[in-house]
Every structure is written in C-alpha cells, then in structure tokens.
Design a binder for these strands. Structure first.
Lengths: 182, 182
DNA sequence: TAAGATTGAAGTGTCAATCTTT
DNA sequence: AAAGATTGACACTTCAATCTTA
C-alpha cells in the first residue's frame, strides 16, 4: 500500500466530526436515557423490539436478530429484565427448543414512559442543531454510506502483509483519525 | 415530557443511517486495521498520539487525555505495547510521580506501515461512496452537531422523574432508534 | 493534601463449548 | 446431525480505592 492520498481538508473536517459523533453521541443518549428512565440503551432497544412483535413476544433468537446483539448477550439481558419484572421468559409450546421472551405490562408502561424521553434526547442532542435542509442533505449522504457499508469487500486492497500478529478481537469501537505521522 | 413530536420521515432516515454508521463503521475500521497491521484502533490511536509529541514521548496522563481513554486503560495499553516492543515506559526525571511513554523505533516503523493501511480503509469504507460536494455538505452539518454535542446541558428538559432506579454505567455504546411503541 | 499512576472489581459484549430438543 | 439456548472464559473499558511522590 505504497501510494495513498492523505485526506483533503474537507474530508479531514468531515471525518473529525463524524468520529467525534461516533464516540460521543451514543454515550450521551445512553446516559440521558438511563438517568431519566433507569433503562440502558441496550435494554430500551430490547423492550422496544419486543413491543413491536406480535403479541409482544419473540423467540430469543429473533430478539437477538432484531437488536443486533449476540444470542448470549440476549440471554443475559432478558434474564436481567425478567428479574426486574419488565419481561417474562417461558418455553415455547410449539418447539421445545425455543424460549419466548414477552414484554410485561410493566415493561410496556416503562417503554411508554421512556419513548418521549428518548426522542427528546435525540432532538436535543442532534436535530435541534440542524435545519430541515441540512437534515435532507446529510440524510442523503449518510444513507448512501450506510447502505454500502457492509457490502464493501472485507479484504483490504493492498497485500495483506502483517497477517501474522493477530490476537482475539471482540466488542468495542475505535475513533481513529487520519493525518500521517512525522 | 408529555408532548414530544415523533421524528419526521427525513429525520428518521438520517437517524437510521447515522445509527447504523455509528455501530458498524468503527468495527469495520478496527477489523481492517487489525487484520493487516496487528494493531487495534485503540493501539493505533495511542502510538499515533505519541508520534506527534515532542521527542515522541508523553506523560501517561497527557497520553490518556490525547487518546480520550481513561488513565487505567492507558496504563494497561502502554504495558501491552511495551511488551511488544513498540513503546517504552520510564519514570520522569523531572517529576517522580510521572511516567513517560515513548515510541520506539519499531513503534514508529509500525505506525508508518499502518498509516496508509488505515487511510485506505477510511477511503474504501467511507469516502469512496460520496463525491466532493457531498463531503462539504455533510461536513458542514456534522461539524455543527459535533461542536455542540458536549456543551448541550446534560440535564434532560422535562421533569427528572425516575431518578430512583440507577445502576452503574460504564463503557459501551447503544444504537437506539426512534419510532414509538404501539 | 493533591497529583500521577496503578490495581482491583465490575459492566458490556463476544466466541466456543455444551446441553436439550428436533 | 442441526437448531435453539445457555454457560464459561475472556477481551475491552471504566470507576473507585490505593500507593507513591510533591
């Protein structure tokens, strides 16, 4: 990978802003939600997912699919929500292998309380700062990027040289920036 | 928080794209970097930060500040990088409390190798999908949001009702979405 | 006391192995 | 076998407590 163009100043500016948003925004949203409702963002997503399912009930695997979490994380999350009375878990009568997570009335009430809190947070942290034109413009740009994000081939273009040193990778995000070293 | 306007369709679209980018892009960048160079994004950021410091050397606290990581994470990260020969750590002669992390020649070489890999990854994952006009437009919008992100007051607007239930919060990101329940 | 750094405990999340049912 | 779910082990990260030096 010998010849790479550095980012242009305009690219640099966009990248900086995006990386900052990527790092900061989720924490702010999570914190807003948790302080006011006692639900983490992950929990909110989980019960919201259940609330939209038929009968407010989902197989564990489908719930995991819906939230984008792993099956094991989903198991632990649902167990915790159950211990707080927001969700129940029972074996499926149709298929003995499946467990069904179902939103309780309290869970639904909690969600109804949390939704406006969350939307207000999203507006205050993000949309309050930009007008309608900007929303449409940025929407077009980011939609394109988001759509192509995962179907871009995983293998980097150049020669995959240093494939040797490799440790296990899980979880968390970076927030890397661009300009070259000295 | 009784009256909250749901997001408009245009807002919804932007929000969806942004949340998807927030979740997916960091993992892709991290994975690209790790596969090709053996450095995680966090490690890359750390050594890049050192590379830009006078004498390629920084107090632990300043390094933590520069990378945005906690002091304890920085300690563990530097210890690990040291065990791989990319960084050294020594006590400061000026202040007995301070430790100085310094990039080694190998660390610098590694960074020089990794930089083009990373920039290529950023281009391929992001900038290749948008043209110059879009870069400028999105840049303007996101720069404004990013700038105001943290100086927006932390306290939610409405009555802080459910302040009771609260557990410890650390680490990780959500990727919450917007529309209301049933 | 306070600042700098490290260590210990804990939360979030993943993968690999396991157990049960089909 | 294969699918569904859980458990165990571990990586990443932070907060709180601690240790050392100023």
């Amino acid at each position: 990978m010998p010849n790479v163009e550095p980012l242009t100043p305009a690219e640099e500016a966009l990248w900086w802003a995006l990386m900052r948003i990527v790092v900061t925004l989720p924490r702010l949203l999570d914190s807003d939600l948790l302080c006011t409702t006692g639900l983490s963002a992950t929990e909110y997503t989980t019960i919201k997912c259940l609330s939209e399912a038929p009968n407010r009930e989902l197989r564990m695997a489908d719930l995991a699919e819906g939230t984008g979490l792993s099956a094991s994380r989903t198991t632990r999350l649902v167990d915790d929500l159950q211990s707080r009375g927001l969700v129940t878990k029972r074996a499926s009568s149709a298929d003995g292998r499946s467990n069904l997570a179902k939103l309780t009335a309290e869970g639904m009430a909690k969600l109804k309380f949390a939704w406006p809190v969350h939307v207000a947070s999203v507006r205050r942290r993000f949309f309050d700062h930009i007008d309608g034109t900007a929303v449409r413009r940025a929407g077009h740009v980011l939609t394109v990027v988001a759509a192509r994000l995962e179907d871009t081939p995983a293998a980097p273009p150049g020669t995959p040289s240093a494939t040797s040193e490799l440790r296990a990778r899980r979880g968390s995000p970076p927030w890397v920036s661009a300009p070259p070293p000295l």
